[in-house]
Design a protein around this nucleic acid. Structure first.
Length: 472
RNA sequence: GCUCCCAUCGUCUAGCGGUUAGGACGCCGCCCUCUCAAGGCGGAAACAGGGGUUCAAAUCCCCUUGGGAGCACCA
């Protein structure tokens, strides 16, 4: 049997990070077994399903690089099929019309809670033949849940889980307006699409028994289920949109590479021995549902950051440069008006954790510092730096070969000639060209900056020193 | 309240009856060094508690505690 998995998000306006991991697991499992991965949009709730909300899901998937073999399918377009199944269930006696009003249902639940019982439908319309005389509204349709026996599920990550049917009430499968509800729709779609493996969040574990019973009524064998645990935030709490990292796009905005996010996600709840870094091929080759953890896991930003830096260092610099360009534009910088992005990435990657940080720390390559960092200037742009700056500038200006090696030799030669330590020459230059005390190695920095710009900024620093001395 | 699920360093995890309880992130120290990093080396850090089963339990069973999910004409 060919493996078929699906990811079935409801369009909430963004791709949730937990959903993204579920999608990744499903995708990996399908890829691993040469199967098919399906994307299905659960948009039966008309009000929430806007085109924007749907696009947010699609964009998130694309950003992560999760492609699908079939779909996207939209449940909103399958109304006829659902109606057909509902009729079938009605005809076979597995479903019935319920005329109870919402008011009655609400007070029923209230009473049950007051009596410390589990709220649920009491089955009043379960066996009636004719609509009650006092029926006010259009009826809903309920599934006739078995009252005896149990449902046993062999969950691929939870193991054996069972539910007594007596715990299950008769759920509504069609609203008064005839539209189908979630539990019915999921069952029909998974059945029609021929899903072999349903990998989903464990918030659905409780629904599974109901769905299996519906499948039984339809005389269809249930798929293999795998309920993966939730992802919690750094404090071990439920992820909320307000935490700023519930959406995968939040991670993009925070400067993470999709490769890092994917690698981070795959190791959250899944492991393969001690391996931390996985290429996509390695993930596919080694992914296994049986190695998924049973307990919830918390997001940890510093580990993600470490992975991100790892990918910034090891991925093709030109590729990372494309992502950096996006962030530079966010800062109002034209990425084409500076050094080669690949070269920039090559020397910034090992000193920044995120693309946002990289972009910020690279701003001086695009515009001269508007002012010097106070502390850095006080320490390095003092009177005694004038000679060092003037000397290197003069020597650098004579350089025909503006290469890292030549610049390095020149700066070092200047230090030696002046009897100074390397730092006494390099640091003033660094502050002069970058405005602060931190930058890539001074030779690389100047090489990236270009000869003209470098010399001009050094000269400007000399002038600044002279001005500050005269004022003092 | 009822039903279901979960529990190893701060975090992600390895472990699937016998280990000095391993790795990774982070943290601390040392080395390297023109800054910041990166890198190398070293270190601190965990089996929630209590009962069983067994020659032997982090591993199996039960209870407690603590988390989480579900109980909609939402998905």
């Amino acid at each position: 049997m060919t493996v078929k998995t699906r990811f079935a998000p409801s369009p909430t306006g963004y791709l949730h990070i937990g959903g993204a991991r579920t999608a990744l697991f499903s995708w990996l499992y399908a890829r691993r077994h040469g199967g098919s991965f399906v994307l299905r949009i659960e948009d039966t709730d008309q009000e929430r399903s806007t085109p924007e909300a749907i696009n947010a899901i699609l964009d998130g998937m694309a950003w992560l690089g999760l492609d699908y073999d079939e779909g996207p399918f939209y449940q909103s377009q399958r109304g006829e099929r659902y109606a057909e199944v509902i009729d079938q269930l009605l005809a076979s006696g597995h479903a019935y019309r319920c005329y109870c009003s919402k008011e009655r249902l609400d007070s029923l639940r209230e009473d049950q809670r007051a009596r410390k019982q589990k709220p649920g439908y009491d089955g009043r319309c379960r066996d009636i033949v004719e609509p009650p005389a006092d029926a006010e509204a259009e009826p809903v349709i309920r599934f006739r849940m078995p009252t005896e026996g149990a449902v046993h599920i062999d969950d691929r990550v939870r193991g054996h889980v069972s539910f007594q049917n007596s715990e299950l009430d008769d759920l509504i499968i069609a609203r008064a307006d005839g539209s189908p509800t979630y539990n019915l729709v999921v069952v029909v779609d998974d059945m029609d699409n021929g899903m072999t493996h349903v990998i989903r969040g464990d918030d659905h574990l409780n629904n599974t028994a109901r769905q299996v019973n519906i499948l039984r009524a339809l005389d269809v064998a249930p798929p293999s289920y795998a309920h993966v645990p939730m992802i919690l935030d750094e404090d071990g709490r439920k992820l909320s949109k307000r935490s700023g990292s519930a959406s995968v796009m939040d991670f993009r905005d925070q400067g993470y590479l999709p490769e890092a996010v994917v690698n981070y996600l795959v190791r959250l709840g899944w492991s393969h021995g001690d391996q931390e870094i996985f290429t996509p091929e390695e993930m596919i080759a080694n992914f296994d549902i049986d190695a998924i953890n049973q307990s919830a896991s918390s997001l940890n930003a510093s580990k993600l950051a470490w992975l991100n830096q790892n990918y910034m260092k090891t991925l093709e610099p030109a590729y990372v440069g494309e992502h950096l360009a996006w962030h530079l534009r966010q800062l109002g910088v034209d990425p084409d008006a500076g050094p080669s992005l690949a070269a920039l990435v090559a020397c910034q990657a090992e000193r920044t954790k995120t693309l946002v940080e990289m972009a910020h720390n690279s701003l001086f390559f695009y515009r001269a510092p508007s002012e010097y960092d106070d502390k850095a200037a006080r320490k390095n742009l003092k009177g005694d730096a004038t000679q060092a700056l003037a000397t290197v500038r003069e020597r650098l200006s004579g350089l025909d070969d503006w290469s890292v090696e030549a610049i390095h030799a020149t700066v070092q030669g200047t230090a030696e000639a002046l009897g100074l330590k390397m730092g006494k020459v390099a640091q003033p230059i660094r502050v002069a060209v970058s405005g602060g005390a931190v930058s890539p190695p001074i030779d690389s920095t100047l090489a990236l900056l270009g000869k003209e710009t470098s010399l001009a900024r050094i000269q400007a620093a000399e002038a600044w020193i002279a001005e500050n001395l005269s004022e003092a």
